[in-house]
């Protein structure tokens, strides 16, 4: 009897397990993104500093993060912290730490370039109207920066969602791992399960990420008009 691959999805609670796995991925990405945005805003402002030493350390941080594979960072924080510092972090906490560490650097660089792309006249008009430095940033520069940042922020978030598939290596079971478990559990009975399971994961990713990028596009359009 021919066993159809798609049946595997409806065995037991496989389908639900996939959604739970996706929820784990999303949760990690969204929490990390939240911290990355907050810290990245500050880091981006620090990056525009004219102090050469400050700029050097910002650059060093950014380049370090870019050179180091996220996997190495995950291992360092998850296993390294336990071995060397006796800090036993859960896989989820370690993942949020690493993704925030990475996201803050990337976000900071985006914020820096957005800040630098705002003409100097915008600052001067603000000062000429009697605003102080904080007021100029709060009412004039940051609102404009956020608008410019929206597309690249969305991009970073989706990259983060995709990168969450690495966290399985520190024991966090997310959607791709659940998929592998389902495929493997039935590898003797349903050899072509992989195609179906990965296909469904693809659609699930799309179903979740598409509204995000759609919302960002709409918001961007609304802000432009």
């Amino acid at each position: 009897m021919q066993n159809l691959g798609i049946q595997i999805l409806f065995q037991g609670n496989n389908f639900l397990r996939l959604w739970v796995g996706l929820w784990v991925s999303l949760k990690l990405a969204v929490i990390s993104m939240f911290f990355s945005i907050c810290l990245g805003m500050l880091f981006g402002m620090v990056m525009t500093s004219t102090n050469k030493l400050v700029r050097f350390f910002c650059r060093l941080y950014l380049e370090t993060v870019r050179i180091m594979p996220q996997l190495v960072l995950l291992f360092l924080v998850y296993f390294g912290a336990a071995k060397h510092l006796n800090v036993n972090l859960s896989g989820g906490t370690a993942a949020v730490l690493v993704f925030t560490f990475w996201g803050t650097a990337e976000m900071g660089d985006l914020v820096r370039s957005a800040l630098e792309s705002i003409p100097v006249h915008q600052y001067q008009s603000g000062y000429a109207l009697g605003f102080g430095k904080i007021g100029v940033y709060r009412h004039i520069i940051i609102p404009q920066t956020i608008r410019r940042l929206l597309p690249s922020m969305m991009n970073l978030l989706t990259r983060m969602v995709k990168t969450t598939s690495l966290v399985v290596l520190i024991g966090v079971i997310e959607v791709v791992k659940v998929g592998k478990q389902i495929i493997d559990a039935s590898r003797y009975t349903v050899p072509d399960a992989a195609l179906w399971v990965y296909g469904v994961i693809f659609i699930m990713y799309f179903a979740v990420c598409y509204p995000f990028s759609r919302a960002a596009a709409l918001l961007d359009k609304k802000l432009r008009d």
């Binding site: 960072l73 730490l97 925030t100």
Partner: peptide, 19 residues
């Protein structure tokens, strides 16, 4: 790289780093 990473990592997210 551990030293740098941990220092910066904790800095980046010290709010969640609960020993």
């Amino acid at each position: 790289l551990l030293g740098i990473t941990m220092a910066a990592g904790l800095l980046a997210g010290c709010s969640q780093a609960k020993a």
